[in-house]
Design a protein around this nucleic acid. Structure first.
Lengths: 146, 146
DNA sequence: TTCCTTGCAAACGATTTGCATTGGA
DNA sequence: TCCAATGCAAATCGTTTGCAAGGAA
């Protein structure tokens, strides 16, 4: 029944954790896989055509987050948006246009990425803080808004 | 009446915009200036000893944000925290504890900072994007939560 | 049968708003 | 005087939870 590679990977991932991959959960994952950027509960609810009531959707999001399938993103006032975890989508950063508000995912070249990681580790060490993840968001003007 | 340099700068800044620097607003700015990292409305409310009721506090925060004195930070689920704008505090980054939720400001050494800026500029060039600002948030475990 | 999952409705916490009052310029 | 700022209470919005019903193992 898995429709896509992502779907199959998630199914496998959940099986090893003995978490059921129910139709509602599958719908959410599929919705996120189809989305361009991070989606809020309400947006997902619409995306999957009200298939799952909001309260169940929230519970589904909590389960998937706990299972490491999705990751919350706090970029907007009073709203949590979720996206598939980086082991599915790959590590990436965000370009945020201050003019039109668009958010783009961006992959940066591996050498740059490891430079960032090295910096982050160094900073953490100095501050007695154990880094688990980092977000490098770049705000500026996108190509269309120059 | 301005007590600190920050207070004086903000007073001046607001005067040019013809926005009144009332006692309530001054209290919020002073509270933020005294704080270690970004503060939520509720935290500030406590910080300034309930001097300003929450509803007015929220209005004050909106005014100060609109005026460019403070800046919102979305790092934690369901909460908006504010901090003084960078023209007041200087450029800095954030350490976000995934365990207790605390957010700390961190200055990183100038060489590191210019490395980051160089990276950001290079990334922008590649993506045909003009960087104006960047945020490097590091999520992990703080000293107390190790 | 025994859990886990779901749906509904009510509860919750953060934030916003309407409205009447206060207070500076 | 006049408009902005304030305080209170009620409303709103996103999210969470209690509880009873449905479904898979």
């Amino acid at each position: 029944m898995p429709a896509t590679a992502i779907d199959r990977d998630v199914e496998q991932h959940l099986r090893t954790k003995e978490i059921r991959y129910t139709p509602g959960r599958r719908a959410v994952v599929t919705g996120l896989a189809a989305a361009v950027g991070p989606r809020s509960a309400a947006e997902l609810h619409a995306d999957i055509n009200n298939l799952v009531p909001l309260s169940s959707l929230y519970r589904t999001l909590a389960v998937l987050e706990e299972a490491g399938v999705i990751v919350p993103h706090f970029g907007t006032k009073g709203l949590t948006r979720y996206e598939l975890a980086e082991w599915i989508t790959g590590h990436h950063h965000h370009l945020i246009c201050i003019s039109c508000g668009a958010v783009d995912d961006i992959d940066i070249p591996a050498p740059h990425e490891s430079e960032v990681r090295r910096l982050v580790d160094e900073i953490g060490e100095t501050a007695n803080f154990t880094p688990v993840n980092h977000t490098l968001d770049i705000e500026g003007k996108c190509a269309r808004c120059q």
